[in-house]
Design a protein around this nucleic acid. Structure first.
Lengths: 235, 235
DNA sequence: GCAACTAAACTGGTAAACCAATTTTTGAGA
DNA sequence: TCTCAAAAATTGGTTTACCAGTTTAGTTGC
């Protein structure tokens, strides 16, 4: 029986992971296949000797990764994925560490180079207005000598929101705040950078507007080049 | 006051979104800045006239996107991101729709072409063993005429787990099950495809092993080409 | 007047009780 | 024996009550 008390986030996650493993083991033991029903949350919490809330959180995480599916007043079911895949995925999920700054930047550049291409292909006139607004807000802040990290971010997110790919857009929303936080921590993005960035932002906007796909990508690449250097200098 | 009863997932999400908007409005109204403390969950639930659980779920979502930070026995705080960025992000987050199959495939290909490059650069001998095991499991299933979608998936996840970028790896884990589900729904991945895929998997493995970065990417590209065609035929 | 200690109030997290929809069981009627 | 409706049991979701740290206010001693 758990003795109670508040645990650190780390310990807490370990407990969740432990429950996830036990749920996976149970599915293996009972040879449950896609669509089969898991024992109820109450039974699981009793069998695993943890609180029902803890079980629910573990199920939530597995649901996030598409391995389980909860249906109200009915039960929790194995998703349309076999046990082999599930076992492999659980292992990888548990091994997943917190992303480091390098991973984040590497990923951001990958995503944005694709996004800017898609955006230039798929942008509507309404999208262009949004991007331009973000562009001008950034410019104004920089020229006033104010910190413009937020406006910079919003310019890039406006493009992501234009790319017509909700998965990519969602991923951008996920990683952007973490990158910003790191930027502030490491004092990336100085003033001299910002002035150069205005010009590049304008070029990107024009390329998207004119649907010059390849050019848009090239300028974005240049835009990130300085960033890259900063990051590796920091490291 | 809520009248009670079970709501559809759609209605439920709308309620969460509504609360998210109200929390954002409150932060604006009170001019809260990064690091400032939000009203307690109890006060929020009272002020917004919703249950505390609903407030907690909204906060969780905002925390997932890096906009808030909850600290046990202390409070919920505005993350290290200004209100401007927060307002923009909230708007984009709420506008984020469920990903369609096309978005998923488009994203998967982008991720995997990068991942296979990184994997070939960073793979350890231990990684190679894992990939090879996944490769052989896939081959065995296919040659036995059995369905091998799971093993195919695990081969690709083994590579993702090798790429040394936890953000990319996590994104792969997130989208892969959804893709599999769609594959099954649309009956992609026939038997004749699988036999071809074995050869390509072997080539990818060899390229990663020999650290032939560009070659690995090229083969992966070919590997996805058939998939692409299938998808657009379906559409 | 101020530093230091104490206690009361407050906080996010967790366990327990409750709810309504669903599923299963039951039994009456044909 | 079969059918079908009614009721009991079961389910995930929600509300409520409680917990142990944290923070703040108050008080004591100097």
């Amino acid at each position: 029986m758990k003795v109670g008390g508040v645990l650190s986030k780390n310990d807490n996650e370990e407990i969740h992971n432990k429950i996830i493993v036990q749920i996976a083991e149970l599915i293996n033991l009972k040879n449950l296949e896609p669509g089969d029903k898991l024992p109820s949350e109450r039974m699981l919490s009793e069998k695993l000797d943890v609180s029902r809330s803890a079980v629910r959180e573990a199920i939530n995480k597995l649901e996030y990764y598409g391995l389980l599916k909860s249906i109200p007043q009915s039960g929790t079911f194995v998703a349309n994925i076999g046990v082999t895949a599930m076992n492999g995925m659980v292992e990888y999920i548990l091994g997943l560490g917190d992303p480091d700054f390098k991973s984040l930047v590497e990923t951001r550049i990958l995503l944005e180079l694709k996004i800017v291409k898609l955006a230039s292909l798929r942008r509507t006139t309404e999208d262009l207005v949004n991007i331009k607004n973000a562009l001008e807000a950034y410019e104004e802040k920089v020229l006033n000598g104010e910190d413009a990290v937020q406006e910079d971010l919003l310019f890039h997110l406006a493009i992501a929101n234009t790319c017509g790919n909700s998965t990519l857009n969602g991923f951008m929303l996920k990683i952007t705040p973490e990158i910003i936080t790191n930027f502030k921590k490491y004092h990336v993005c100085g003033d001299e950078l910002s002035v150069v960035a205005i010009k590049e932002h304008k070029q990107i906007y024009e390329a998207i507007k004119n649907q010059e796909t390849q050019k848009a990508r090239e300028i974005m690449k240049v835009h990130f080049k300085t960033l890259y250097q900063y990051c590796y200098n920091i490291k």
